[in-house]
Design a binder for these strands. Structure first.
Ligand code: SF4
Ligand code: SF4
Lengths: 162, 162
DNA sequence: TTTAATTACGACTAATTTGGTCGTAGTTAA
DNA sequence: TTAACTACGACCAAATTAGTCGTAATTAAA
């Protein structure tokens, strides 16, 4: 439940791998697939999406490969999501390319859903890939105490933070 | 892509419907299904999950039904999610009850994924159902979690602009 | 005490989405 | 020419999600 798309994982795996390369140094899909065990073709497609999105540059032919062309610290996760799985549209009635939802017209939560969609996009836009990749462990946020209170009030434990 | 679970929508539909009832007034699944066109059985199951989670109380038998027993303004969306689709675990390696992920061991993004998982949970915990349901159009400046919590602790309700 | 309206719930099927593979073509250095 | 790559559409397989069915339990009212 609540799983993210596998493509996003392959994208992050590749991005993290490429991040440690010298500028100009290329990375092949074969290399990524061999190093991390992810399926070649699937990973290849993901890299192609990233290339289409301008996040990486591809060089074809023998000794070809990919290289990062953007600063991951300034790259919102939302953009990666968009490149590999498309825009965040959490319900059928938002952008009804496929006919939309049959409940539309009687539905009472369209606005709330639009609301949530917008907030989620905000969330993903406010989170950089660099931040995600290097942040090991817990980052103390000014929100922590309040969250703790809220969670406690709701009768939940806070997840243990390493 | 990026769709949320349909169960969550049915939950929100039901919750929003019940919110306008008087205390003690019951709502039947039949009523919800008829009003909004959602499938009876599916909606029924969702309501049962909400009842199991203590969000609503059920009354059985003829003239039975459900009623809200918690203040939606203090209810993090995360709890509803948990009740209807289980805990937020965005990747297979986070809850290895089902064997986990085959990439584990060679994977270089486990920490980042754990990170994202935690941030998403924070996001859903910091968003109340009331907040979500109220805003029809745009909320110009979403009130910060800190302020909301201060208000809650001070015993004030959120301004329910309807 | 019967009936009708309701919740409760497990098992099942259908539909959709996701994940992964294959085949083939294009590009380029050696 | 060949080998090592990227590019990409079509396809198949697996997993998840969505919805249905059958049946039981509960309760108010006839
Ligand atoms: S919000 Fe209402 S109309 Fe839009 S998809 Fe969900 S149920 Fe259908
Ligand atoms: S983070 Fe790595 S190990 Fe965990 S599920 Fe994703 S790919 Fe598998």
């Amino acid at each position: 439940m609540n799983k993210i798309n596998r493509k996003l994982e392959y994208a992050l795996i590749g991005l993290k791998h490429m991040r440690s390369k010298q500028p100009g140094e290329l990375t092949t899909v074969k290399e990524i697939a061999a190093t991390y065990g992810c399926p070649f073709e699937a990973t290849s497609k993901v890299m192609q999406s990233l290339a289409a999105g301008g996040l990486v540059r591809s060089e074809q032919g023998a000794h070809g490969g990919y290289q990062l062309v953007r600063d991951l610290n300034r790259l919102p996760l939302y953009e990666v999501l968009e490149m590999v799985v498309g825009p965040v549209e959490i319900a059928k009635c938002l952008h009804q390319v496929d006919g939309g939802c049959e409940l539309r017209g009687s539905c009472n939560v369209i606005s709330p859903i639009e609301n949530l969609n917008r907030k989620l996009i905000e969330f993903y836009r406010g989170l950089t890939v660099g931040e995600l990749l290097e942040g090991r462990g817990f980052v103390a946020k000014p929100q922590s105490l309040e969250l703790r209170d809220l969670a406690a009030h709701a009768g939940h434990e806070l997840a243990a933070v390493e």
